[in-house]
């Protein structure tokens, strides 16, 4: 809690996490979260250090 009593950290459920991953994968790479996970695991991104890819890759643990 911060000094105003408002919660500043929120644990997401698995469902919420998958929704977050999907939303950001669509935002940055115009693909579903499921497709991103598949391509990432198959190492299909030519340049994984590209900012758009990194933005989503960091969220993989939210996908469960």
């Amino acid at each position: 809690m911060n000094t105003n009593g408002r919660r500043k950290i929120k644990f997401l459920s698995r469902k919420e996490g998958r929704k977050l991953l999907d939303k950001q994968a669509r935002r940055y790479l115009r693909m579903s979260g499921e497709e991103f996970v598949r391509k990432w695991k198959a190492k299909e991104f030519d340049d994984p250090d590209r900012p758009e890819v990194m933005q989503v890759a960091f969220l993989l643990p939210f996908g469960g």
Binding site: I9, F11, L12, L20, K23, Q55, F58, L59, F62
Partner: peptide, 23 residues
């Protein structure tokens, strides 16, 4: 903006993001 976290499982890579991953 709020920090969201994926969990606190032991020995598992978890993630945190500000503003649900958006700037």
């Amino acid at each position: 903006d709020v920090l969201v976290v994926s969990g606190s499982d032991i020995n598992k890579v978890e993630s945190l993001a500000l503003n649900r991953g958006s700037p």
